[in-house]
Structure formats: C-alpha cells, structure tokens
C-alpha cells in the first residue's frame, strides 16, 4: 500500500502548521508520542477528508512510529478513511433493529437514487456510502447519518426528498 518513493516524506511539507499544532496539543497529555496516533489521524482527516499515503507517512514520522504500525491502526478503525471520500459520508445503519424495520428496502432505494453501493462515491464526489454498526437510535429505525446529521424513520419518500437534486441528475445523465 505504501509507495516506496515517499519514504523520505518531509513532515512540514506534508502536514500544515495548523495540523501540527493540533497534534502537539494531543501530545501534551500522552506519555509517549504514538499514544496520539488515532487523534493525529482524526485531526488530519478532519482537514483533508481522508488519510493519503503521504499523510500517513508524515504522521508516522512525526510520532516516531513506523508507517506500517500506523497503517495497522488506520485500517483497524471504521471511521478512518484510507481512500478519498465524498464531501459527505453517508453512514447507513443496517444493524438488527433497522433491519427488522425494513432497512434493506431503504438501502436499495438509496443505491438506486445515488447510483452507488457500499464503499463507493458518487460521480460528483458529493457522497460516499458506507454501512455502520448500529447507530444507537433504534427507537427511530430505520436511520442513517448524512455527514453529521442523523436522519430517522427513513422511508423511500424521505430518500427522494433528501437527494432530490441527485434524482434529477441521475435522470439527466443516464
């Protein structure tokens, strides 16, 4: 996964002063640098949307870790993205209560409207669709998050309304 040409990553050209300053803030309350690994990944992802190979190399170097160790951490967690994502990530809950309440049909509708399946990003880079473990809103199932917003009691009409611009585009392009 890691490009050999980037072994000599220059931290200060790969990470912005703001990112480095925020990572320093986390380093202040961990006993050793690698303790801030997840925080550092999240800080960089918050600015750039995802963790590129170059970002990963630079963070690892800054935290005195091997890139391989940091890669093991980055790929372990559901909410760290090692591939580019759209402007908003759709976290679709397909766990048990949402399934009982019919989320499979909603998922199909979502896929039809957006033209993407799990792990894919819409052509205009607006949305990436991924499944998420139970979102803890089971009394309002089926649910999903679009960016930071929780959408509850989903039905096909709600999907149409949420992505009405997408509907038109999909119709126009196809």
């Amino acid at each position: 996964m890691i490009d050999a040409q980037m072994i000599q990553t220059d931290v200060s050209s790969a990470l912005s002063p703001e990112e480095l300053s925020e990572i320093d803030g986390e380093l202040a309350h961990v006993p050793y640098k690698s303790g801030a690994a997840i925080d550092a990944l999240k800080i960089v992802q918050a600015k750039r949307g995802w963790i590129s190979d170059q970002s990963l190399q630079a963070i690892a170097k800054y935290l005195d870790m091997s890139a391989e160790e940091l890669e093991g951490i980055a790929t372990f967690y559901n909410l760290i993205y090692r591939r580019p994502v759209g402007k908003k990530v759709i976290l679709f809950c397909d766990s048990v209560s949402c399934w009982i309440c019919g989320c499979d049909g909603i998922k199909q509708k979502l896929t039809d409207v957006l033209g993407v399946d799990y792990g894919e990003t819409t052509q205009d880079d607006a949305y990436t669709l991924i499944p998420v473990p139970c979102l803890g809103a089971c009394d309002r199932a089926p649910v999903m998050m679009v960016g930071d917003d929780l959408h509850t009691h989903l039905d096909e009409a709600k999907i149409d309304a949420l992505f009405s611009d997408k509907n038109k585009k999909a119709g126009g392009n196809s």
Binding site: V30, A37, I38, D39, G72, Y77, L79, I80
Partner: peptide, 20 residues
C-alpha cells in the same frame, strides 16, 4: 474512531493509548 470491540474495557484502553 469506531469499532464495536472498543466497548470491551481493555480494548477501549488500547484505543485510548492510540493502538489497535
């Protein structure tokens, strides 16, 4: 950063330490 296993207390501690 999201994984169900983080709810297990020793896994949670590892996550707080920045590990898998």
């Amino acid at each position: 950063a999201g994984r169900y296993i983080c709810g297990e207390e020793t896994a949670l501690i590892n996550a707080l330490e920045g590990k898998r």
